[in-house]
Simulated assay, not measured.
Amino acid sequence: MTMDSFRALVVDKQSDAFDVGIRELRMEDLPEGDVTIRVAYSSINYKDGMAATPGGRVVRAYPIVPGIDLAGTVVASSNARWREGDEIIATGYELGTARFGGYSEYARVPGDWLVARPPGLTLREAMIAGTAGFTAALSMQRLEANGLKNAAGPVLVLGATGGVGSHAVAMLARAGYEVTASTGKASEHDYLRGLGARHIIGREALMPPEGDRKPLRSEQWAAAIDPVGGASLPYVLSTVRYGGSVALSGLTGGGEFPATVYPFILRGVNLLGIDSVSCPAHLRALLWSRIGGEWKPERLEDMVAGEVALDELPEALPAILKGGVRGRTIVKVS
């Protein structure tokens, strides 16, 4: 296979020098793998913003091409599962942190990391979902596996205007759940209602008054999807109904939280860790079929905050770390 050079966003760190910029690469610069992909779309996730920051601490070795997800077309394969022309999705594993990721016109990955594009999604739609939508779907699957049913009561979604939160609101509503969305952005209530939220509460409603450390409060939520973590998590745990669960997938609100054992031993509350990075292949395929099927949001396009090209990534990436992005920013790679 002979191909000309191609463009990629490369992050490099050498001694005290840190650089983020577009470079020309060749096929031999790509890591080993049995499937080569022409990347059509990627997206901007919180971890991508961290990868492009000197103190982000998510990159294992430099130089790196960030982009923890991608959608594109197979151009070469020695893997029996994939043939030239297949349209695929890749999220998680080591993409964008230890292996060159999606911010590149071409990528090379192990075939076992790939999922076939489901019929219900275009490549662009697959990246409107991307890692954020997959994380929301995995959260739903874990909640349902732990007993959540439609009639159980309201389901709380924290950080509801973010990528995971937006998809969680829309997917839960599509599946018939009563969704309460939490946000600190009063200007985004119409957006959340459009996604299917029945109730909207402010972020401050989940923060107890200073000095209030009650281990249990009135039961409110049948379950919660929390991509935020931090100080609000103990309050959420103290208000989940008997036997309910909290699916925790993020740390935008902080990596530590004070808690007690009481919600767990007196109400049987479950705290479910959601890891979309190393999710087993069979479950990935199932969840992507649901994302493109019965859980596909009716207003998927409404979640797109913007679309950027590779050249715009150095300026676009820092915004997600500031918490000012609504929904999803997708990257049109090639």
Rank of each mutant, 00 (worst) to 15 (best):
G111K: 07
Y46F: 14
I274Q: 09
G202V: 01
D311I: 13
L148A: 01
V228S: 02
G230D: 02
A259Y: 02
A305P: 03
G230C: 06
L313S: 01
P209W: 01
V246A: 13
V35L: 05
S42K: 03
R60H: 14
S249G: 08
K296N: 12
P31A: 09
A151G: 06
E94M: 12
G194H: 02
L272N: 06
L313G: 01
R299D: 12
G101E: 07
V308N: 04
G162L: 11
P297K: 06
A285Y: 00
F264W: 03
R203P: 00
K332A: 12
V75R: 11
E301V: 13
T180D: 07
V11F: 09
E125Y: 02
G268P: 04
S5N: 15
G254Q: 00
G56K: 01
P54G: 01
R26M: 15
A137I: 11
F257P: 06
G85C: 08
L70S: 10
P119M: 01
G323V: 02
H282R: 15
T122R: 00
W82P: 03
T239W: 13
V20F: 00
Q14F: 00
V304A: 03
L248S: 13
Y62F: 15
R299V: 08
F18S: 08
D29S: 12
T131F: 01
S139M: 10
R108K: 13
L192D: 00
G292F: 00
G194A: 12
G176F: 08
S187V: 11
H167Q: 10
G196Y: 00
